[in-house]
Each structure stands twice: as C-alpha cells, then as structure tokens.
Amino acid sequence: MSIETPLRHEAGASVLQQPLLEVRDLVVRYGRRRKAAAAPPAVDSVSFSIQPGETVGLVGESGSGKSTIGKAILGLQKVSGGSVGFQGEDITHANAGKRRAIGSELRAVFQDPNSSLNPRKTIGASLAEPLRVRGISGAEARTKAEDMLERVGLPRDAVDRYPSQFSGGQRQRISVARALICEPKLVVCDEAVSALDLSTQAQVLNLLADLRDEHGLSYLFIAHDISVVQFLAKRVVVLYRGQVMESGLAAAVTESPKHPFTQALVAASPVPRPAEQAERRAVRESLGVRTAAAVAATPGGCPFRQRCPLATELCAAERPALRRVGASEVACHYA
C-alpha cells in the first residue's frame, strides 16, 4: 500500500529521480513479545516517500505514531517490520557506524528546546559535535559553528555561551543550526515548533522555509497541528493510531478532506475569526464523529471505526486499503 508520489507534483523533474527517503510498510511494535502481540502496533504498515527538495508533513494526534515514525527513520526506535531507505540505501537496521556515515545527510530538529541542547556544553561544543564525530578539526568546526549561528540569526560569539543564556526560540534556532551544519539532504523536524509561543514559532517557521529555499533541503515535518504543517509542507500524510488515513497535497487535504477522520481533524482546528469559526463548529457538529472512546484499540479493521459516523460491519472486518479519491489517497471504504 505504498503511496504514489503525485505526478502533478510541482518539482516535476524530481519525480523521475530516486526518492530521497522511502518508507515502506513500516511497522513498529512497543513492548516485549507477548505484550507487543496483544496491542495493535504503534506504527502499522506505513509507507511514504520524500523526493529531493520536497517537504512532507506527517500529521496526527497523540498516539498516532507520527513521532515513532520519525524515530524509526533516525534509528532511535527499533523497527519491527518494513524498511526505511535513504538515497537508495536500506538504513532500517543501520548500526552506529552506518549512522555516522549517513548522519551528516539525515538530521533532526526535536521538539523541546530545553532538552535538545546539552546544558553543560557550550553552544559551540554542541554545534561542533556532529563535525568532530566526522573528524573535522576543532578550529574548523568552530568557524563553521560561527558561520552557522550567523545564518540562523544569532551572533557569532554565541559559540562560547551556554544554552541557559538563550530563550526557547533562540535555542530552537541553535538546534536548527546544529541540524544544518553538516549540509544535510533531509531534516526530520519532530514537533520542532510546538513548544514555542506564536511569535517565536513564526520566526522558526520562517527560518526553516528560508533555509530550505537556500539549500534545496527536504523536510519531514512532523506535527499535531495541521495548520503549522501546511505552512511548510506541500504534501501531507494524515495518521490515526499508527495507520495512514489520507495523504495528498496539503491544499487538497485541508480544503476538501476525504477521510472522515481528516474531516474531523480539520473541522476541529480552530481559526481566529469568530464568524468563520462558528461555521467550522457547525460543520464539525454535523459530522457526527463520536468522542475519542475510552475503549482500547483493537487490532483488525479500520482503526477509526469506533468514532466514525460512516462505519459498518465491513469496517470492522476489513482494513480499508489506500485508494485514490479525487486528488488524494484515502484509506476508507466509504470516502
């Protein structure tokens, strides 16, 4: 159930290239053997790919498995099934040595600016770490760190300071600098702006957009907030309980969602215009989506069926495959 990259994608030429990242039928189970078998997997047969220069958004609520997918790609989470390919190479079970080899091209920005920098190391030392691992000399690494800080809008002398001397937004810029210092191809941004206030969030989002345009970067942008995702991502993948519900162009998914879950998600995201919000609320209430049930997830069938207004016996019996509906891929029997 791989998701075809839409042919109408704007970077038309890149479609013919090998994808930068290829996630195929990824399965991640938590816990030991017996426990893992009883509960549905945290990530259940997820496939998607990212072309060079493309930004893909991964959207879902808590427990959707979106961060787990990011971790699996980065080698921070053991994969139970499926594969992750990066630049045509299988990195599903890459060891530390292999990670070191690809680590300069596949990098990450994490959510919490308070914990993503070691408080006991100077900014310079944190920025230099990925370079030093790759055998670059201290002096050269320092110069690169200073250049990079300047690029993300911080003074060069920040290298000698400690993370506690910076605000959350500034620290997130430093994390971005750390991710980009090796001139990567793909950056996994895991809730990279979720912990920031509105105005700082906008600063970091702008920075990410600028850097992407400058360097032709690709992002896998993971977030719970579909509006934030659609600022950066052309294409989004919507997850629910570890499975892909819908994927397609951001505009199509947010303007005319096809899957009942995506419809609920979009309608529930409030807009700061009272009149429009009242309409959204009316739409949401008319959808008839049931409340997130306290019942535990059960394996088999559509994971959304307990909340879905369209659900029938078929949905319990058979997991819907992704199929093309309009401009998007949708995993629903009735969309």
């Binding site: 980065l74 921070l76 530390a96 990670r99 680590g103 994490f110 914990s115 993503s116 770490e129």
Partner: peptide, 15 residues
C-alpha cells in the same frame, strides 16, 4: 532520555 542524547545518536555517537 534527553533529546540531546537523541541528537547525539543521530550524529552516530556510540553508547
């Protein structure tokens, strides 16, 4: 469990 340890792992640092 700090994220900077995750970041170091992404860099390819061993345990």
């Amino acid at each position: 469990n700090q994220l900077y340890v995750d970041a170091a792992k992404v860099d390819g640092l061993g345990p």
